[in-house]
Design a protein around this nucleic acid. Structure first.
Length: 440
DNA sequence: GACTCGTGGCG
DNA sequence: TCGCCAAGAGT
């Protein structure tokens, strides 16, 4: 299965240009003054204070306009406005046709920490390859990882397979409908359990994801970091109270859709169905909600990898089953140690990870990528085996960082799941005009 | 709670 | 170039 690229089908699901235009003009206006007469200086002071609400004072002469409807005392009206908005603005996503548990499940896992457009393209390809749960359960991990290649967080794919097999074994192949049974499946945490229970089965549970947190933090003016305990508890309680009876499926999707399309990082308050209920908008502090947590530090690191070729074949190894890129295939390599050149590092890493003696024949360039806490520069090299004069049977590799290895024909690189950076390198090897091809 | 786990798009 | 982040879960 080939990695999805930007296909024409995806355009169906993107935000329209009209919405983008409206949003930008609104944002500029809001940045300058705020919709209700509070200055930027006022907002700035509110952000740093622990108690934004009590310290709020209108600009001299400005009176907060009438019409704000405190959300706590207008829940039914708010719920109705949200559902009406969703009915008119819901995107026609592929898993919104039938709401089968399998499709809802796959879509929810794929969309974790993944942008909608990418999720849609992978979802469509996934359903061609694994059309139902038994088909997934019958697949190999190699196949599943290959279908997932490029999405990242590969434990999601491994857990999907494990969960599918568990459902076959313990639930007779029928996706469980009880919240506890759903939550017990590998890879399904609090959010996803609630999403499947409500969206697939319309059970009365509230979904709380980053979108919902953002919407609630603004509408109800939650003034502590949303990831902290107190804020999380308040948001959970508010989310429960917001849920209309019998409407969990539509309501939860509406909350998340609103957070994605309107109440995003760039809020489009002018087109928001909840604007008249929104406390943060009323106070002119929409941009200060939600209150962010502390940000992680990014460490720059130098990493090397090498493409070892011998007799027209290329060496790859399969990473250990757990941890980063677990179960994916890669070219051996590792970090450059202090005082070491990248060339020295790749020779050392090959010796440590495979027992193979190699030498560098050519540099293949530097690939930049980043993940969570690292910003990586991956130095790539072409390698050849170091052989002594006397012919002898080739010694088998001694793998210390992998469970398997293979010598591949160049065309076979396509068939294995690889980390994104290694995939870029592999693609450069087979590219028709690859500047690196001469090295082979 | 604090960490880890990927990737590509965007301003 | 760089920081931020997009429908979180597992340890």
């Amino acid at each position: 299965m080939r990695r999805p690229c930007n296909t024409a089908a995806i355009r169906l699901y993107t935000t329209s240009g009209r919405q983008r235009q409206c949003a930008s003009s609104l944002l500029r206006r809001g940045d300058r003054k705020g919709p209700h007469g509070y200055t930027a200086a006022m907002r700035s002071r509110q952000t740093t204070g622990q108690h934004a609400l009590p310290s709020l004072v209108p600009v001299t002469g400005a009176v907060p306009p009438p019409g704000h409807r405190p959300p706590e005392s207008h829940l039914p009206e708010l719920q109705q406005a949200l559902l009406a908005w969703f009915a008119a603005n819901a995107r026609p996503l592929p898993w919104r046709r039938q709401y089968t548990p399998y499709e809802v499940w796959i879509s929810e896992i794929m969309l974790q920490q993944t942008q909608m457009e990418r999720g849609v393209s992978y979802f469509l390809r996934w359903m061609e390859r694994f059309p139902d749960l038994p088909a997934l359960a019958a697949a190999s991990e190699e196949e599943v990882l290959h279908a997932w290649e490029g999405l990242g967080y590969y434990s999601r794919a491994r857990n999907l397979l494990a969960a599918a097999r568990l459902v076959m074994r313990e639930h007779g192949g029928i996706f469980p409908s009880g919240p506890d049974a759903i939550r017990a499946l590998p890879g399904i945490g609090p959010y996803t359990a609630a999403a499947i229970a409500s969206i697939a089965f319309n059970l009365p549970v509230a979904c709380i994801d980053a979108n919902v947190e953002r919407v609630i933090a603004r509408v109800f003016d939650v003034d502590s970091p949303v990831k902290s305990g107190p804020a999380a508890a308040r948001i959970a309680e508010l989310a429960r109270r917001l849920l209309p009876a019998g409407e969990a499926r539509r309501h939860n999707q509406a909350m998340m859709e609103l957070g994605a399309l309107v109440c995003g990082k760039k809020p489009r308050c002018g087109q928001c169905p909840l604007a008249r209920f929104c406390t943060a908008l009323h106070l002119g502090i929409v941009h200060e909600r939600p209150v962010p947590g502390k940000k992680a530090e990014i460490t720059p690191i130098e990493v090397v990898t090498g493409v070892l070729s011998s007799h027209g074949r290329i060496f790859v190894q399969k990473r250990l089953p757990r941890g980063a890129w677990g179960g994916l295939w890669e070219f051996p390599g590792g970090r450059v140690e202090p005082g070491e050149t990248p060339e020295q590092a790749v020779v050392r890493e090959f010796a440590e990870e495979t027992g193979l003696a190699v030498r560098v024949t050519a540099p293949l360039g530097v690939i930049r990528h980043g993940y969570t806490t690292y910003r990586v520069r991956l130095h790539c090299f072409a390698l050849e085996p170091v052989t002594d004069a006397t012919p002898r049977p080739p010694e088998p590799p001694v793998l210390t960082a992998a469970t398997a290895c293979r010598w591949l024909e160049r065309g076979e690189l396509e068939s294995l799941a690889m980390p994104a950076a290694h995939r870029k390198l592999a693609d450069s090897l087979t590219a028709p005009q690859g500047a690196l091809l001469a090295a082979f």
